[in-house]
Write a protein that binds this DNA or RNA. Structure first.
Lengths: 123, 123
DNA sequence: TTGATAGTTCAACAAACGTTGAACATAGGG
DNA sequence: CCCTATGTTCAACGTTTGTTGAACTATCAA
């Protein structure tokens, strides 16, 4: 598979694009899941999101998240590891990412941020 | 003109809809302009946004902003007065509106949040 | 080399979106 | 009453979006 894909620089990150990206339920769930995992490890790979949708649809959303500057992708063998661009986002838009994630957490069930099986596992 | 249009209740306000609404440049400019005016008077009428786009296009965006719970419209004679639903938004999504407005302010010129003539007037 | 695994790319399609202008409704002033 | 100002609604349009499945690429392990 090709090399590590292009990402915007910090200064190229645009507010409307970020908000638009976060407004899609699947992408919000991806960002939320990344944020939840952050204390443990800052990275997750594509397969960790398979519960959210099909692989090709996820690839589409990953690309959007990358293009708008929300995520960074690192290629390692046959895996791609993704992490939130927290530093860049906090620098550009202070408090925004946290506010979104906190708000999303409050509505977690309404938003189906967790996949069905995870909910079952937790219960 | 018909009666005052329907608005969602506080609990009906949904995060993805709010983010999607804010991701449009014209709507972001409307919200920003309302937020700027807040200390002075919490309301502006439709005509105050005429620099942003045509009247029918603005009516379309006003409807979106109302439907997602960002704004409230009050009918007074031939005017409609609009204000941000700050209390409701802060209750549902603490810090979100402020983070968006602060971020928008930082990029004010890049985002064309102010109309051309306002910029000229200021210069 | 063969096969399996991980993920991307492409073409297709329906649905939703933003913009326009024309028509409409309503209220207020002469 | 007529006229104007304010704002909405409607139909039309081209564009962008999200989703699908099939084809593809690349890496690793046996």
């Amino acid at each position: 598979m090709s090399r590590t894909p292009p990402h915007p620089t910090r200064e190229q990150i645009e507010l409307p694009m970020v908000l638009d990206c976060l407004s899609d339920p699947i992408r919000l769930a991806i960002v939320y899941q990344l944020a939840q995992q952050e204390p443990v490890s800052s990275e997750l790979c594509c397969g960790d999101f398979n519960a959210l949708s099909g692989k090709s649809n996820l690839a589409y959303h990953f690309a959007k998240l990358r293009e708008c500057g929300l995520m960074q992708t690192r290629v390692a063998g046959t895996n791609r590891f993704m992490r939130l661009r927290r530093e860049d986002l906090d620098a550009r838009f202070p408090g925004l990412l946290d506010a979104v994630i906190t708000s999303a957490a409050k509505d977690a069930d309404r938003l189906r941020l967790v996949s069905e099986c995870e909910v079952v596992d937790a219960g």
